[in-house]
Simulated assay, not measured.
Amino acid sequence: MIRVNGEQAPWREGMTIRNLLEERNFTFPMIAVWVNGTPHKRDEFSSVKIPDGAEVQAIHMISGG
């Protein structure tokens, strides 16, 4: 089990940031992701594996003015 934005979510062996975003329908192109407090760049989403018990924050970036 992991926590995503404060809510429990299922975890599976080998889960990457990209897998998680797709499963949760986080498709907004401007998104920032932290796993256990460590920020990750968009080009790392397919390679960074999420460990069991991780705390994940996924924040949609919105511009305005």
Rank of each mutant, 00 (worst) to 15 (best):
R18L: 15
F26G: 05
A58L: 15
E23A: 06
G53R: 02
S47Q: 12
G6A: 00
N36E: 08
V56Q: 05
G65I: 09
H60P: 03
Q8C: 03
N19L: 14
H40C: 07
E13A: 10
S63L: 09
K49Q: 12
L21M: 03
I17N: 01
E55R: 05
E7Q: 02
K41T: 12
G64W: 06
I17E: 06
P39H: 12
R42T: 15
R12P: 01
R24P: 00
I17L: 10
I2K: 04
F28V: 12
I2L: 06
D52I: 11
G37I: 00
S47F: 13
E55Y: 04
D52R: 06
A32K: 12
V48G: 04
V33E: 12
I17G: 00
E7F: 00
P39W: 07
M30K: 10
M61H: 04
R24F: 08
A54R: 10
D43P: 14
F28M: 13
M61E: 03
N36G: 11
F28Q: 12
Q57V: 09
K49Y: 14
A32V: 13
I31H: 12
P29C: 15
V4G: 00
E23V: 01
G53H: 05
I2Q: 00
E22H: 11
N19F: 14
I31S: 11
R18P: 02
D52L: 15
T16R: 08
R12I: 02
E44C: 14
T27R: 07
P51R: 08
G65W: 13
M61F: 09
D52C: 10
V33M: 07
G65L: 11
P51T: 13
T27Y: 03
D52N: 10
W11A: 02
S47P: 01
F45S: 00
E13M: 10
M15H: 09
N19T: 11
G6H: 00
T27D: 08
A9E: 13
F28A: 14
I50F: 10
P10H: 04
G53A: 06
I17T: 02
V4D: 03
K49L: 15
E23D: 09
T27C: 03
E22C: 12
I50G: 09
V35F: 15
R12A: 04
H40E: 03
F28Y: 14
H40S: 05
E23K: 02
R24C: 05
S63A: 08
A54K: 05
R42G: 13
T38H: 08
A54G: 04
S47H: 12
G64R: 05
E22S: 12
R24V: 03
F26S: 00
H60E: 07
F45T: 01
V35L: 15
V4S: 05
N36K: 11
E7P: 02
L20E: 13
P10S: 06
I17F: 04
P29I: 15
